[in-house]
């Protein structure tokens, strides 16, 4: 029902709901009244916009199959990375024993961080094998050690191929030379 009450004192006392043009006079719930204001138009437009956006999203990915779905997106990412890092990561890389001080120091740092938990600070082993004795299960060549670090072993050593090859080579070189000293 429309509110036809006229507020004689409005100008003196400011807002008074009783005289609000929009008051729905027959809505009263334990004293709570309601107004008949329309929802803010911007809010309604926001709603329509999200509905259209959603339809567009579904159309783009599923009806017209324009965008890549999850598996394809991953393949794209990998392909892109392979292209981008071709030279640095999958390119030719010479595995030779490093003996310059910087590399060995870097190798020592990596060793301290990633290897000591299993092989011990001085390489005497623990969970992992002893690295300072003369026994080499997988060979003592720099290539063997590099391979073990990079790819892990079936016996339980984890693969560290998330480290750059250079860093693996540094730590392998460190293990083969400095660690014993």
């Amino acid at each position: 029902m429309e509110n036809n009450n006229k507020d004689p004192k409005e100008i003196f006392e400011g807002y008074n709901e009783k005289f609000d043009k929009n008051l729905i006079t027959d809505h009263d719930y334990d004293g709570i009244k309601e107004l008949d204001n329309p929802p803010p138009p911007w809010l309604m437009w926001l709603f329509y916009l999200t509905v259209f956006w959603s339809l567009g999203y579904v159309a783009y990915f599923h009806w017209f199959k324009q965008g890549p779905l999850q598996a394809e997106e991953y393949e794209n990412e990998i392909a892109e990375a392979e292209k981008k890092y071709k030279d640095t990561k999958t390119g030719a890389f010479e595995i030779i024993l490093l003996n310059d001080e910087t590399s060995l120091a870097a190798g020592a740092a990596t060793y301290a961080k990633s290897c000591t938990a299993c092989h011990g600070q001085n390489g005497k082993g623990g969970i992992g094998v002893n690295l300072v004795d003369e026994e080499w299960i997988y060979g003592s060549d720099i290539k063997n050690v590099f391979d073990v670090i990079k790819n892990g072993t079936s016996k339980g050593m984890a693969s560290f191929n998330s480290l750059p090859d250079k860093q693996i080579l540094e730590v392998a070189s460190f293990v083969l030379t400095e660690l014993k000293k």
Partner: peptide, 16 residues
Amino acid sequence: YFLPKAANRPIYSYRL
């Protein structure tokens, strides 16, 4: 319930 009670104001929009 409690907001209009505490503020003593009508609900802005029944339609909303």
